[in-house]
Design a protein around this nucleic acid. Structure first.
Length: 107
DNA sequence: CACTTGACGTCTT
DNA sequence: TAAGACGCCAAGT
């Protein structure tokens, strides 16, 4: 596997501030690998580390990946505990909680 | 080599 | 705006 890819992506994920979320595509681009969103997901699927805030990674649409799974429920709970609000349809407003866009546009 | 798969994303209807 | 189609790329079969 490409160790550089893993390290770069994991490093970016660790940069996500508490109470905010990022998306697979954005993280891939930040890591220097545009169009590799699916691989970020592949990485998280195989990688389990308690320190890593994997739950701060959502789909670009603002909805959770793999809905219906126990993992998604856990993720929802963890995010809510950090103050992130979910809409009625079960999606997150990235204009409010998305990173790094939100940090940059902070008014 | 052809085809499928997957924690995704964008473009068309 | 919602629902599909289509694109993406590395790995596995």
């Amino acid at each position: 596997m490409d160790a550089a890819f893993r390290l770069a992506v994991l490093a970016c994920i660790r940069q996500i501030p508490p109470g905010q979320v990022s998306s697979y595509g954005v993280l891939a681009a930040l890591a220097g690998y545009p169009r590799h969103a699916r691989h970020v997901g592949k990485l998280l699927a195989a990688h389990e580390e308690d320190e890593l805030p994997w739950y701060r990674v959502v789909a670009g649409s603002g909805r959770l990946a793999r809905p219906g799974t126990p993992e998604a429920d856990l993720q929802r709970a963890l995010l809510q505990s950090e103050g992130i609000a979910f809409r009625a349809n079960g999606s997150i407003d990235l204009r409010q909680f998305g990173w790094p866009v939100h940090s940059f546009m902070r008014k």
